[in-house]
Amino acid sequence: MHYAKKVLIITFLLCITIFIISPFLMIIVTSFARGWFGTQWMPQEWTFDWYQWAFQVANIGAILKNSIIIAVLAIAMSLFIGMATAWAIARRPVPGKEILFSIILLPRMIPPITYALGISNIFYKLNLIDTYLGVSLAHVTLCLPFGILILSSTFEGLDQRIIEAAQVCGASRWRTFFHVILPLVMPGILAAIIFTFTTSYNEFTLTIMTYGPHTVTLPVKTYLAIGDGYWEVASAISTILLIPSLIVLIIIQRLLKPEKIVGGFKGV
């Protein structure tokens, strides 16, 4: 009885594992497949052509560059803007803190497509469409609330007594900041960087309303490849894109609490 139950549980977990992993395996197999017709488990022929295509024709290199530049800009802006606000929320008396917080989190609660229309409208007038600045600014809308959320919880955890102790010991303001506060909040900032990076790297809705030929990011390229290219090539592109995502996944697993990421839903 006990043994049967164990087998049952393991089978169930195995099924769920297959359920989650197989789509990715299927992408990887498709990216190497040629002439995979009808109903067969594996393709007739294996090929690297689609990867060659992804680099030569689809210009994956340039697009990866775009994505990273936009993500770095978005992270920098979000943290720069968010730092001060998070500090004030965490460590200063602010009237109506809860309401303020829900206002800041509102962009994450309302479907992005609703205000993406407005953003693209404004950006057209300001000539921000198809610029790195424009696309990353659009990403800030989603990254900032998330950054503030993580940073303020980090700052809240900061013990006032340690700071005071440092000052009592005669440390200057700068010294206190660099040698006491910064090491304490660094893990929080790192978490904020990683989560805002995931947000920006995966963001699709706001990007498709503000992108142009010079600012095609990876998700947009995947969409275009699925929409008017070949699925074999789209799979090759996707396989290449999986690598940074897996790195982020490992980082989150190793360094941070996975539960935290739930605030940082990806670009839906």
Partner: peptide, 10 residues
């Protein structure tokens, strides 16, 4: 975590 960190389109 995979469905969360990997772009939705993929």
């Amino acid at each position: 975590l995979a469905p969360i960190t990997i772009p939705g389109l993929i």
